[in-house]
């Protein structure tokens, strides 16, 4: 305490900062501050107010932090254990993610499986094996689902990239920049973010680095759109469009999507040759 006005030795009031440190037992000269407090009603009142504030924090906290069940630690372990262990199937296990989204993820996976099986049956291909679904089939389901996801993201970003920033029907106030309603794009972006995370984790575990990086980049831009206001200014729209353009994200989606489709085509050709 070198500032004379802040130094109790000089008869100045104790600063709020020092009173806070005193409260936490970290004041540099606690005896000097205590001595000042004994003779200074103003500083004593300030100290009492700080103490009451911190007690109020405790009171607010007491009912605020929700309890976890006794088995919470075991639950945490069950959720993270698949991500800690290695092994060939590890990447297919669902990642630790918000439990609110587990339901969505489960629904998504069931839909993917149902869609895949329906497609197989409708093509009058050989009878489905009755055993558990194979590793290859799982890979294909995820790969095909990712292709669809990328196509939806591409379509949405292309729409944003082509928005002209002219206000919708509302008359423009003189001198104010027109707003652009992106509320529907925002909702679509939020859906794509939730699904994209599942695919990104899967790609990561499959060692599909290019796909993972693309999905990560895509997630960032989609998250920004999902959290944007429903109506953005023309400048904000241009900033998003510039980001899409600068990063060449549409081009990358097209390139990766094309690679995925090509791999699927080659696989089918190979499977066909084996069948012959």
């Amino acid at each position: 305490m070198t500032d004379p006005e802040r130094d109790p030795h000089n008869g100045g009031h104790v600063t709020e900062d020092d009173l806070i440190l005193l409260q936490y037992g970290e004041a540099p000269h606690p005896q000097a501050i205590d001595a000042h407090l004994r003779v200074c009603p103003a500083c004593r009142a300030a100290q009492a107010e700080i103490r009451a504030t911190l007690e109020a924090v405790n009171a607010a906290d007491a009912g605020e932090v929700p309890d976890r069940a006794a088995g919470y630690g075991a639950q945490v372990w069950a959720r993270i254990e698949p991500r800690l262990s290695g092994g060939r199937l590890a990447w297919l296990r669902l990642p630790a993610m918000p439990s609110r989204r587990w339901a969505l993820a489960a629904v998504l996976i069931v839909m993917l499986l149902a869609g895949f099986l329906a497609g197989r049956l409708s093509r009058t291909e050989p009878e489905m094996p009755s055993g558990p679904i194979s590793q290859e089939a799982r890979d294909r389901i995820l790969l095909l689902a990712m292709t669809g996801h990328l196509e939806r993201a591409q379509a949405m970003l292309a729409e944003i990239a082509n928005l002209n920033g002219v206000a919708h029907d509302a008359p423009q106030a003189p001198g104010s920049p027109p707003g652009v309603d992106i509320s529907s794009d925002r909702d679509r972006a939020a859906d794509l973010v939730a699904a994209g995370r599942i695919y990104r984790h899967s790609a990561s575990r499959a060692g599909e680095t290019g796909l993972e990086l693309l999905l990560d980049e895509l997630e960032r831009i989609l998250t920004d759109i999902a959290h944007a206001p429903s109506e953005i200014t023309r400048d904000e729209l241009h900033a998003i469009q510039k980001r899409i353009e600068d990063r060449g994200i549409l081009l990358k989606i097209r390139a990766i999507g094309s690679q995925v489709r090509q791999r699927e085509k080659e696989r089918r050709a190979y499977t066909g040759r084996i069948a012959i």
């Binding site: 976890r68 919470y72 630690g73 075991a74 945490v76 372990w77 993270i80 800690l84």
Partner: peptide, 10 residues
């Protein structure tokens, strides 16, 4: 590690 997780989770 499981024991450590269960110990510190709460």
């Amino acid at each position: 590690f499981r024991v450590l997780v269960e110990e510190h989770s709460h």
